[in-house]
Design a protein around this nucleic acid. Structure first.
Lengths: 245, 245
DNA sequence: TTTTGAAGGTGTATAATGCACACTTAATAA
DNA sequence: TTATTAAGTGTGCATTATACACCTTCAAAA
């Protein structure tokens, strides 16, 4: 039996008396998959790189971790730099570390995905001229392993949307049932039955129907709803309620 | 509107002409949450640190990422160093980056969880004397943010076990229905109904019942089963079958 | 003023799945 | 032979999921 005093074991497990000073360090990046819902379609925000490497190609928005922040803060900062928004839903996705993933320099990247309500945040469009919202269905090919990041983010979004009320992060405060259904159809990439969808949503009992209608789409107008976050959280706590679409 | 040529924007997004040489680098660690199933109980493998910081306390097994490997490889290496096993189920869990999480030095850690079939791998016990299998229900308090890592790993294992046939990674090749049920009861931390459990498993139609019995537990003996991985994968591909417990 | 078009709004019946539940069998040891 | 212990097996009820079609509203066009 080996012991932790064995030099080989110590080397492999990175144990050193003077803490860890002999270990290799790496560059840590964050890359953000930014989802938005606009004109009844799920979108993704991409940027055209005008710096090397891969200048001129489309990529996710990214940045590097700084000494005085953790990864969540780095992702917040990157997102705010690009969009001017803080208080955005952000969730860590996965960490990518293939040795040659970035030809410029060895970089390990932590991917985050963000959900933005495009319509109601009248942030002056995007603060970077080279950024563009793409329909999720016809986003261009991306640099490095960013396509894989997007694929995983879409899968995560699908799962989250089915089990947590995060869809509302993508909608304006007031929304119609049809908008909500369009959102879910975009995320799940399939048509849903209108009556079944509404029945399911209503059975959750976490929306408030307003006396107000959105008249912009149809002659008849559609009632507006808001998500009652307090009620949702109370239900989760008290009844062990769990959101399921 | 800002452009990516603005210095402030460039700084925040970490864009530099000579690639990224001015950026801060950090130490990247991997920590492994190692689950095993032994004596009909779910276990976790921990190590007593005999090096600073936090010498003498229990912790997960970890190591540092080296220049010539990616994170998956680092996790494999750490696991093999400790247990002598390769070919172990390993899955990336989450990346932890709180600034002061390791008082020794700023370290960002990528947590992995591993599933080991303790009984059939007669690896000479554990290759490090200070390591110990704890019942998942009475594991000790751990250093740094390792408790949080374990909490998240348990949740992930629960979810995975319900939707992917990874439970078999924890069992010997041949196992009884009762063992499988015990495993699921440990993972889900609740009692299951025997008949309903067996009915559900049988309806999945991915096990092969052998003509062989395990006589070690009961007088009557219990039939042994094996997981038919080929059949499972064929079903997934051809029928869009999805494993659900 | 009547007609038409386009989206909104609503309920039921059947199928599938989930869940609760108890007795018989086999084999060994006393 | 009988007492003990775990193995093995099926049904009925409740809940949830899914398929499905017609009427309403109102503005614009005829």
């Amino acid at each position: 039996m080996k012991t932790v005093e064995d030099l080989e074991v110590k080397e492999n497990l990175g144990m050193h008396l003077n803490y860890y000073q002999k270990e290799d360090q790496v560059l840590l990046a964050v890359d953000c998959i930014i989802f938005g819902f606009e004109k009844e379609r799920l979108k993704i925000l991409l940027i055209k790189r005008n710096f090397e490497p891969e200048k001129g190609k489309w990529s996710l928005i990214g940045g590097f971790l700084k000494k005085n922040e953790d990864l969540d803060q780095a992702a917040d900062r990157v997102l705010e730099t690009l969009t001017g928004l803080n208080d955005v839903y952000l969730e860590q996705l996965h960490t990518y570390s293939t040795i040659d993933r970035d030809p410029g320099q060895r970089t390990v990247s932590v991917a985050y995905f963000a959900l933005i309500d495009v319509d109601s945040h009248r942030f002056d469009g995007i603060q970077i001229d080279a950024a563009h919202w793409f329909d999720i269905k016809d986003a261009p090919d991306l640099i490095f392993d960013h396509n894989e990041m997007v694929r995983k983010a879409k899968a995560r979004l699908r799962r989250r949307a089915l089990t947590k009320p995060i869809g509302f992060e993508l909608l304006p405060e007031k929304f119609t049932m049809r908008q909500l259904q369009n959102l879910y159809e975009s995320i799940l990439d399939k048509k849903l039955d209108k009556r079944n969808f509404i029945n399911k949503i209503n059975s959750l009992d976490i929306l408030v129907k307003l006396d107000e209608k959105d008249m912009s789409v149809s002659r008849k107008g559609a009632y507006l709803y808001i998500f009652d976050k307090d009620k949702y959280e109370k239900k989760v706590q008290e009844d062990g309620f769990s959101f399921k679409i």
